[in-house]
Design a protein around this nucleic acid. Structure first.
Lengths: 167, 167
DNA sequence: CGCCATTGTCTTGACGTCAAGATAAAATGA
DNA sequence: TCATTTTATCTTGACGTCAAGACAATGGCG
């Protein structure tokens, strides 16, 4: 018996159209990259939903989580936060403005460098992110239920190698 | 000899911090999902760069490419375009407005349904997207160079299965 | 026929992001 | 020392996106 081929999905249909219209192109990479992009959009939307239950989005959660997992005293500079979050400095300023208004972080002067700012998690921010991360991790487990243990390990390994080409 | 373990990457460091700070959480899924998200950001930025050489971004390219690969007469309704692009109707209207201003598409009434609109690629739009897709596909090949043939197939298969859980 | 739910598209207002540049402080080095 | 470069953060203006809802046309159904 021939092995079962998986059913045609949305991305397969796109590739089939290109093969019809532009036979000169080798569109094979478009399949992998298209699936990665679509999957990422679905996952991001699911993650936003889970965080919304705590009044957060993934932008604000990322900042709070970075401060939380840094350990006591839960303080980092905007520059430190930039180094881990893949956003521009203007975006980080905007995120910090909102978190400060919400009382989840505080800005303090750095006595050792007056250009620099110390961002500190408030008790309210700490409590919120600690609750949110619990929900978030549970949600992440749920999102991975479609894959078995071996598949997760294989996928993670391939993503690791691929990602290494860019950072 | 023990097998070589890959070097610690950015995501590994995040996981190590969580393991230190929140030992109650099983953060294993965060590794896979974090790598997927970071990888997608890197890839999206590279793709934007390649399309910018043609004056396009991935938003406008997606619309033009959908019309192009649909085949003659290179016409679809906004609703058809919505069905393949994972954006809201307001986003699509905005994209079409700009493409129309740029002379790359035209809007026409649908004689069979006066609610409906026919979006047609102009000759200028056809020529542009045909050139852009050539560059885009070359760029996609380049982006996948980090992976071998077998790895690409394995990754694509896992992404296909994962994506199937969401659509 | 005429009412009502549905469909297809567009409008509005808000949000998150970025690139480019402004500002101020600190480090460098002649 | 002092001018220059570098670093750290913030500001500005533009862009792409979304959710919610407006609007007109269509299709079903009594």
């Amino acid at each position: 018996m021939a092995p079962l081929s998986p059913p045609m999905d949305h991305v397969d249909r796109i590739l089939a159209q290109w093969k019809q219209e532009r036979q000169d192109l080798d569109v094979e990479p478009m399949g992998l990259l298209g699936r990665l992009a679509r999957l990422r959009t679905h996952l991001a939307r699911e993650i936003e939903k889970a965080l919304a239950a705590h009044g957060l989005n993934s932008a604000s959660f990322d900042v709070l989580a970075t401060l939380r997992r840094a350990g006591p005293p839960y303080q980092l500079s905007p520059g430190d936060l930039l180094a881990t979050t893949m956003v521009s400095s203007g975006t980080m300023t905007n995120r910090l403005d909102q978190l400060e208004k919400a009382g989840l972080i505080e800005r303090a002067h750095n006595p050792e460098d007056r250009r620099s700012v110390i961002i500190a998690l408030t008790p309210k921010g700490f409590a919120l992110v600690d609750a949110a991360v619990t929900t978030h991790v549970e949600n992440q487990h749920r999102l991975l239920e479609a894959l078995g243990t071996d598949e997760r390990a294989a996928l993670d390994g391939l993503l690791r190698k691929f990602l290494a080409a860019f950072e």
